Computed example of a mutant assay.
Amino acid sequence: MLKEHKLFRAFSTTLVLAFSVMLVACGNVKRDEFSAEMAAIRGEIAEGDEGVERRLGSRVDELENELTTFRAEVETALQDLEQNFDMQMERFQTALRFNAPVFFAFDESAIRPEDEESLNQFAGVVSEFFPTSLVTVEGFTDQIGSRDYNLKLGQERADAVKAYLVDQGLAPERLRSVSYGEDTRRLIVHGAVDQDSGLDNRRVVLVIDHTDATAGAQQVISGRSNEIGNN
Score class of each variant (00 low, 15 high):
Gly191Asp: 05
Ile111Trp: 02
Val166Trp: 05
Arg176Glu: 13
Leu151Gln: 14
Ser109Thr: 09
Phe129Val: 09
Phe130His: 10
Arg157Asp: 04
Leu153Ile: 05
Gln155Asn: 11
Asp196Pro: 01
Leu151Ile: 15
Asp159Gln: 15
Gly181Arg: 11
Ala158Met: 07
Asp159Ala: 15
Leu119Ser: 03
Val166Ala: 04
Pro131Tyr: 10
Gly124Phe: 00
Ala123Cys: 13
Leu175Tyr: 01
Val137Phe: 07
Leu134Pro: 01
Glu114Pro: 02
Ser118Tyr: 07
Asn120Lys: 15
Val161Phe: 14
Phe140His: 15
Ile111Tyr: 07
Glu117His: 12
Ser127Ala: 14
Tyr180Asn: 12
Arg174Lys: 14
Glu114Ala: 10
Phe122Ser: 01
Gln155Lys: 15
Arg112Thr: 07
Ala171Glu: 06
Leu175Asp: 00
Asp167Pro: 00
Gly145Val: 01
Leu134Thr: 13
Ser146Tyr: 04
Tyr164Leu: 15
Glu116Ser: 13
Arg174Ala: 09
His190Asp: 11
Leu134Gly: 07
Ser146Glu: 07
Leu151Val: 13
Val135Glu: 06
Gly169Ser: 01
Val178Gly: 10
Phe129His: 12
Gly139Ser: 09
Leu119Tyr: 03
Asp194Thr: 10
Tyr164Gly: 06
Ala160Gly: 04
Glu128Gly: 08
Lys152Gly: 05
Gly139Thr: 08
His190Lys: 14
Val178Ile: 15
Leu187Tyr: 08
Ser197Trp: 02
Arg112Trp: 04
Tyr164Met: 01
Gly169Tyr: 03
Gly154Lys: 06
Ser133Arg: 02
Asp194Ile: 09
Leu119Gly: 02
Lys152Phe: 07
Gly139Pro: 05
Arg186Ala: 14
Pro113Gln: 08
Glu116Pro: 04
Ala163Cys: 06
Leu151Pro: 03
Pro113Glu: 08
Leu151Lys: 14
Asp183Val: 12
Gly169Pro: 03
Lys162Pro: 02
Phe122Gln: 00
Val166Arg: 01
Leu134Trp: 02
